[in-house]
Amino acid sequence: MAFQNPAREEIGNILANAGSIAVVGLSDKPDRTSHLVSMAMQSRGYRIIPVNPGAEHILGETCYPSLADIKEPVDIVNVFRRSEYCAEVAQEAAAIGAKVLWLQQGIWSEEAARIAQENGMTVIMDRCIKVEDAITGGRS
């Protein structure tokens, strides 16, 4: 059976109940989509945890080289990496007990979805978290 994203209502519930969002591939460059989206989500009250091995701080938050280095619970792993890297990210997300694997707009990986689902995670692919937050009312 082909993968289907959760219904909008479920996506809204996921966002409304998210305590923290680890952003894999969050750029420290303010003109990059990952930075703009994460900054917007942070301004809406979401706890953003940057994951980028090449930076120390992004958006005023400590940056971690990998998901395994994060020492607090993570609800959503939001991925800004190319599709071929997503299976590895899904394995790392499962290892830290994340609840949701979210692949940003333009990113799709059946293998990552399978890994995440087999580990009890909800999967959302090819959707922008900022757009979904605006549509569903996420934190409002």
Rank of each mutant, 00 (worst) to 15 (best):
L36T: 09
S27I: 11
E118G: 10
R139P: 05
M1V: 11
G19S: 13
D126Q: 12
L103N: 02
H57P: 01
I129M: 14
G138S: 13
A113N: 02
S34K: 06
K99T: 06
I70D: 09
E61L: 06
N13R: 15
Q42I: 14
D75I: 11
A90L: 04
V51P: 00
V74L: 13
S140K: 00
R44H: 11
M1Q: 05
H35R: 01
T122S: 05
E111L: 02
D75H: 07
V37D: 06
R8A: 15
M1C: 10
E56A: 11
A95L: 11
R8S: 10
G45H: 06
R82N: 13
I124T: 07
R8L: 14
I14G: 00
E118Q: 15
A7V: 02
E10M: 15
G120N: 07
D31R: 09
A16H: 05
C128N: 06
E92Q: 14
V23A: 00
S34F: 04
L15H: 04
N52E: 04
L67E: 05
I76Q: 00
E10S: 11
G54K: 06
S20A: 15
S66H: 07
N5M: 14
T122W: 06
Y64E: 01
Q105G: 03
Q105N: 12
A113L: 07
S34A: 12
F80D: 01
N17R: 15
R32E: 02
